[in-house]
Design a protein around this nucleic acid. Structure first.
Lengths: 183, 183
DNA sequence: CGTTAGATTGAGGGGATTCAAAATTGGTGG
DNA sequence: CCACCAATTTTGAATCCCCTCAATCTAACG
């Protein structure tokens, strides 16, 4: 408590769970991202789960905030990061609220490739580091529906499955089209 | 362009539209909130729509950012606001991704009452200032489904409809229960 | 009083879920 | 290397919830 973390290794899912077990994964974070920043007097507002082995650098929140007060450029950078997260959140809301199942899965794959690619993680093949159940909870679907969508995309030769966790995007443009991702 | 706005009067919906007409309303903002803050070199990332007549105070983004660089407390306040928005976005994502239709509508009504109440807008009765279609686009449902949920809640004596735009929350606790809202 | 926009209600269909079973994968030890 | 087991994924069938299409109703306005 009282700390936030910059991920140095591995993938982290940030989520929110309901009393009855349903959960929503609101963010997936590769190395470079910070998590655990949102808290109210020591209570984190979301859960974090390590999807792989994770290495992270802990920062004391209070000290960091004091530091930011004296370093305007740091404060500006925090705002920028938060703003960028907020934009992504708005997009994800649109995906969950308006997209059909296959559109959501296509969007997810496109975005994961972009995300991992930007951090230098391998994308050919693309190792997801996230299981069907977690993809489902991220997209507001069920495991079975996600699996069926993978099968459909495979049958259409848009993707190929190496292992269940490892995908090759055979036709990224088609995928982006299905996922309505603007380039 | 180049400005953001603090709402002084009326209600604003912030949304994102797809090529085929589908849209997601990602935020509803009463007086006191700022909108139009998220932009990238002059292009707003979301649309804003006035749901009522709106009065607002425009701030030049560049000047404001410079001002914030010299006033750490202002910068901190911006971060706080963004963080709070991000939290709300995470909640809304959970609502859209995991809740059933009636749970979404109940959650919406609970939240709107809280939101308007906090800004001194009348809540007895509660004037929504937002039509069925907009509620639908906010919750990832259709007009008809939203209307049916209103009817169900009315039949269960949880709410009463004065006009289509004006509601009385007869049993707020029950409503919060259905909407799974934590107090 | 007719018109129009928005809301409600009904009937039918479809996409995602649920429940269940089979197949695949991954890990462990012989 | 393979057999065996648990965990995960895939696939199938049936159900359900929400959507779509359509008609009706209501309220506001000229």
């Amino acid at each position: 408590m009282g700390s936030f973390f910059k991920i140095t290794e591995g993938i982290v899912a940030v989520s929110r769970s309901l009393a009855d077990g349903r959960r929503q994964i609101v963010g997936i974070h590769p190395p470079g991202d910070c998590v655990g920043y949102l808290e109210i007097n020591g209570n984190y507002l979301f859960q974090g789960e390590a999807l792989t082995d994770v290495g992270a650098c802990a920062f004391d929140r209070r000290k960091f905030d004091l530091f930011a007060l004296r370093n305007p450029d740091v404060a500006a950078s925090v705002s920028e990061t938060l703003a960028s997260r907020l934009e992504k959140a708005g997009h994800q809301m649109t995906v969950i609220g308006q997209f059909k199942a296959i559109e959501r899965v296509a969007d997810f794959l496109s975005k994961i490739e972009k995300l991992y690619g930007a951090r230098g993680l391998p994308t050919k093949p693309l190792t997801l580091h996230i299981r069907r159940g977690e993809i489902a909870d991220h997209l507001g679907l069920t495991i079975e529906t996600v699996s069926r969508c993978f099968s459909k995309l495979k049958k259409r030769n848009v993707i190929a499955l190496i292992e269940s966790d490892s995908v090759v995007l055979l036709d990224p443009e088609r995928l982006a089209e299905i996922g309505q991702v603007e380039q």
